[in-house]
Design a binder for these strands. Sequence first.
RNA 1: GACCCCGUAGCUCAGUGGUAGAGCAUCUGACUUUUAAUCAGAGGGCCGCAGGUUCGAUCCCUGCCGGGGUCACCA
Length: 536
Amino acid sequence: MQSIGIDTSVVGGWYICDHRRNYTDTSMTRQFDNDQIRRRYEELHELRMRGVEPYPYSFDQRHTSQQILSGYRDEDPSPFSSVSVAGRIMAMRRMGKATFFHIQDAAGKIQCYMKADELPQEYEMLRLLDIGDIVGIRGFVFRTRTGEITIHVQQLTLLCKCLHPLPVVKEERDEQGNIILHDAFSDKEQRYRRRYIDLIVNPHVRRTFIVRSRMISAIRSYLDSHGWLEVETPVLQPIYGGATARPFVTHLNALDIPLYLRIADELYLKRLIVGGFEGVYEISKNFRNEGIDRMHNPEFTALELYVAYRDYQWMMSLTEDLLVSVAEQVRGEASLLKSDGTVIPLVRPFRRIRLLDAIADAVGEAVDNLSESQLFALCKKHKIDIAPTASKAKLIDELFTALVQPHLVEPTFVLDHPVEMSPLAKRHRDNPALAERFELYVGGMEIANAFSELNDPQDQRERFEHQARLRASGDDEAMVIDEDFITALEVGMPPTAGLGIGIDRLAMLMTGAPSIRDVIFFPLMRPEQTPSTVES
RNA sequence: GACCCCGUAGCUCAGUGGUAGAGCAUCUGACUUUUAAUCAGAGGGCCGCAGGUUCGAUCCCUGCCGGGGUCACCA
C-alpha cells in the first residue's frame, strides 16, 4: 500500500491514486445508455484526479453492523468508542453540512453520521459518492435523538465505486414496527438475470439462500454423523442411467465419442456399494433435457444415499428422521412451509399409503389387477389426456399425478409402485408385481424417492430389456442397458437401501419459495439479446 | 410444444388514435441528529423490435423477441 502524503489534498482515510498509471476518462469516450452511468464515470474520474484510489486493496474491517446494533448499550458506549465497518451505501440523506447514510454489510444495515466541520476534506469527497458505493468507516457509536444506533464517522474510505444506479428500495416503519417496502425491485426477469442486484436490494432473497446453504450443511453433517462417505461420481457419462429422463448430449473430442451429462448418480453409487463401501452419498447436480417451470430447472441438485444391509422400510424411517432433524436445525422447528404461507408440521410417523390404494381411493374402484386397456379407459373417464401407446407404468403414473399428487400436502409416503415403473427397485417380498419403493410427497411436490435396491443381476437384465423394448417402441425417456452395471451386480451387491432427495424442492419447502427459480441463484434463462451477442 | 397475461424514465407504476405522466432515484440551490428527511427548481423516454391499418400509432391488427402463468412432459 502506498503511503499517504503525495498529494496534500488527500486526507487520512483515502487511498492514494497511483499516478504512474494513465487513467483515461471513460466518461468522455464511451457511449452510455443513461446519464446516471455517465455521471458516475465522471465522478470516478474526478476522484482519481483528486488523487483518490477508487479500487483499493483491503480494509481492516473489525465489526459487523449486527455486532454493533446488538451489542451497543447507552449506559456504556465505551466498547464501541472505536469501530470499523465496511459495506455498501444503501441510502443517503444529505442535509447541507451534515449527512446521514446507511451502509449494508453481510449482516445487515447500520446508519452513519458525518459532519462537515469535523471532516471538511472527506465531507467534500462524500459529494462524489453515491448509493451503491462500498466504503469503509471508522468512528464511534452513539444513539441519535430519534433513537437509532449510529456510527459517528471519523474516517471514511472509498473501497469500491459503483457505476450503475441501483434500484432504491425505501423502508418505512408503521406504528407496529413492521417494515413497509416502497418500490421494491420486483421484476422477476431482472431479478433472475441480475441476481447480484437482487441480493443487494432484497434482503429476503439473501435469507432464502442462507437457509438453502444451511440446509445442505445440516444434511451433510447428519449423513456424516452416521459414518457414511461422501463421494463423487462422473458427471460426463458414456451411458446415462438411474432415472427415466432425456439427457443432454455432448461430445468428447479426445476419444471422438458422445457423452451424456448425468441424469442421476444411482448406477455409479451402487457400484461403490459393490466395491465394499457400506454407506455412500453424493450431493450433486443432475441434468435433464426437459421442460422448465416452477418445479423444474434443467440442472438441479439431488442427494442420493445408499446404505448396505438395509431395506426401504428402514430408509423410510431414516428419511423421517433426516427431515425432522434438518428442519429443526434450519427452521427452528419440525415443519415445512408452502408458498401460500401454510405451515406443514413434520410429525413422525408420516402418513403411508400404497400407490394403488391411493389411486383406488381417488377413482372409487380397485386398480390392482387392471389391464393396460382398462387403465387406459380409466384415464379417459377422468379426462386425463394420454397417448394411446402409453405403457402400463405410464398410465398408473398419470392417474396418480392427476388425481392423487395434488392432494398430498401433509408429508406422505406413497409405497409399492408397480415394478414396470421401477426398473431399478427390488420386487416386493409379498408381491412380485410390485416394487419395494416409496416416494415422499410434501406440499403436493415429490421430494424423495427410494427403494430396496434391485441386486439380482438376472432380474435387472430383464428390467433393462423391458426398458429397451419401451425405447424401441418410441419412449425416449426409457432407460438404456448398462452392461457394466449388470456385471457389477453379478459380482454381487449386498442388500441395499437407496434414497434420492430433490434438494431444490426441499429448499423451496424450507423457505416457502413459490418457484424453484427462487432457490437457485442463477436459474436457466434464455440468453439476453444484447448488442454484442447480436453481432456475433 | 399449446394457450392466457405482461413489456412505458435507473426502479415501481399511471395513461391516451393527435409523437407522454407520477413517486423514488439523478442534477442545481437551501438545510449541522435525519430516517419513505423536507423545501424550491431542472434534466432524463426509438412507450420491447419489425411490419400493417390510418392524414396521424405508445394505443388498433399481424409477426418476432423477452418474461410470467396454466397445461403437456418430468423430479
